[in-house]
Design a protein around this nucleic acid. Sequence first.
DNA 1: AAAGTTGGCTAACAGCGTTAGCCCACGAAC
DNA 2: GTTCGTGGGCTAACGCTGTTAGCCAACTTT
Lengths: 174, 174
Amino acid sequence: MTCPEELDPTRLLTPRAREVLAAARAVLERQGWEALTMRTLADELDIAAPSLYKHFASKEALRGQLAALALKEFGEAVRPVTTVAALVRRYRDVATAHPQLYRLSTSGPLDRAALPPGLEDWSGSPFLEATGDPHRAQALWAAVHGMVVLELDGRFPTGAAPEATWRELVRHFS
Amino acid sequence: MTCPEELDPTRLLTPRAREVLAAARAVLERQGWEALTMRTLADELDIAAPSLYKHFASKEALRGQLAALALKEFGEAVRPVTTVAALVRRYRDVATAHPQLYRLSTSGPLDRAALPPGLEDWSGSPFLEATGDPHRAQALWAAVHGMVVLELDGRFPTGAAPEATWRELVRHFS
DNA sequence: AAAGTTGGCTAACAGCGTTAGCCCACGAAC
DNA sequence: GTTCGTGGGCTAACGCTGTTAGCCAACTTT
């Protein structure tokens, strides 16, 4: 299920900027946000750190583009929507498959001005589709997100959330 | 509702370390984690930054103590437990009253080794009390946490989560 | 041929967490 | 009553961070 072209956050980037973004993503997924410094990123591309500023105004801007990219990819990965249970399953799987990207795109403030208009709504719409009601959709999204972040951060006593907890959550929203 | 003395995370700290911790908390709540640097904290106490290391081994250790403190205080603030609805209401209120402390204590990894044994369980037990079932408790906790962090990060289109979404969530768990 | 754009470079700065090494005040021990 | 350990401060400095300034080569457009 692919994202409408006009929502592609990399649409306005130069080819070189797209390469930088891809490298940033690679470092992020491989080593985490902490390890993604302007210098390590520059090393990955075999250029000097200040040269990165030819493509992104700041590290924060780069972060924003990564977040936008994640919004798009997760939105795609979760489609097409069938049942609540299937949506939750897919959401969980894709988030845990890309934990760093997920965390980046879902925690901390989101610079909406830097997002293609409509992308955020589009990425959230599967929950609306699955539940049929905006508030139910928000509540489900929040619940699933809560489970995922607690799981990623190892906040459950068992490490990952027990299957039974996931089932319980799905049950409440089905 | 007060925390058992043996779970008090500041129990083993020297008086001076407690003062440092209190100052750190003040800066954190006033200006956020980003602004809480070893130097700004030292300024707050009218000492030099390296002197802080007489009381805490690292900034990470200090962060851990702040998280432990938050666990204790939030655990207290949410008691005594009556209904699911009341628990959710209290949880939400106390979290939004201390957003920085809440975020600090609930996101990112938690250094359990530095926590008084039992504190984490104690802080989570209200959810068990309210739901009567461990998996229901975890699911509810995750859901409420998800709502709170999305709210704190301004991730809902309206800024805060709509009342109706909170009601929806409570309804599913009541 | 001229001009502008793209994408690189080095040198440097301020702020970050942190370490090393020194010093002084105070309470206990010989 | 002096010695000694300890608690709590200090300055100087290091390596790392994001970022700026200023320069330069190549390529494209006029």
